[in-house]
């Protein structure tokens, strides 16, 4: 499903964070969003997720975005897990809200946790997991939800190089064909994952290390 952001303006109180920002993401496209800290990357994702009021227009498959929906899932930059639910029950949650029967959602949660490398941690509470593990639980939860647009806010920031590589491979495989907006600070990750790379403040840049670096520094 294609995503169109037109003349998006978002502010908190008096401060305007994004103004007159436009972006088009084709159906099934994987677009990486980069930019210096505090430039409004999280704000952009939150607007698309329908979590903050905005001016301008955001449409998904021609439908105007008004409020949140299970069709636009967000992997949060900070901890988006419910701390009183175990890893498995966090992954199950979107399925439970959809009314998927218990046995079925248990099995699917198990499967997804296994795919993010967390087999055996199903019954752990978030506080018993490391930051990187919690991010992977969030990833599993979002993939289990199977939304038509996936929004990811630096999902692999806290991972070691090896785990990061395997999560990147997983995301590439599972989300091929899913419209995705992916925020990262990591230039190599941007080059590796993005069909296109957009730097906030600059606009679309060539998918090359030096081009991205130059745009982010500017």
């Amino acid at each position: 499903m294609s995503l169109h952001v037109r003349s998006l303006t978002v502010g908190y109180g008096r401060a305007t964070v994004l103004s007159d920002f436009s972006l088009d993401v084709g159906s099934g496209e994987f677009v990486v969003v980069a930019g210096p800290s505090g430039c409004g990357k999280s704000t952009l994702l939150r607007a698309v997720a329908g979590l903050v009021p905005f001016a301008g227009s955001i449409t998904v498959a021609g439908q105007a975005v008004r409020g949140s929906s299970r069709d636009r899932a967000l992997v949060f930059q900070d901890d988006g897990l419910l701390p009183w639910r175990t890893a498995a029950r966090n992954v199950e949650l979107p399925l439970a809200l959809q009314g998927v029967p218990r046995a079925q959602r248990r099995a699917r949660a198990r499967e997804w946790l296994d795919r993010v490398g967390l087999a055996g941690f199903e019954d752990h509470l978030p506080r018993e997991l490391s930051g990187g593990m919690r991010q992977r639980v969030q990833l599993a939860r979002t993939l289990a939800q199977q939304p038509s647009v996936v929004l990811m806010d630096e999902p692999f920031g806290a991972l070691d190089a090896q785990t990061r590589a395997s999560m990147q491979a997983l995301v590439t495989e599972v989300l091929s064909g899913t419209t995705t907006l992916f925020v990262t600070h990591d230039v190599d990750e941007a080059v590796l994952l993005g069909d296109r790379v957009v730097v906030l403040g600059t606009g679309e840049v060539e998918r090359r290390r030096d081009a991205i670096l130059a745009a982010v520094k500017a």
Partner: peptide, 25 residues
């Protein structure tokens, strides 16, 4: 607010937000 935001992006209705997030939280 992040807990409520999270379940909203899973499509939770207001009663679901109340019983899944507000009460336990």
């Amino acid at each position: 607010t992040i807990w409520e935001d999270a379940v909203r992006t899973m499509g939770a209705s207001t009663p679901q937000v109340l019983f899944r997030v507000v009460l336990p939280g």
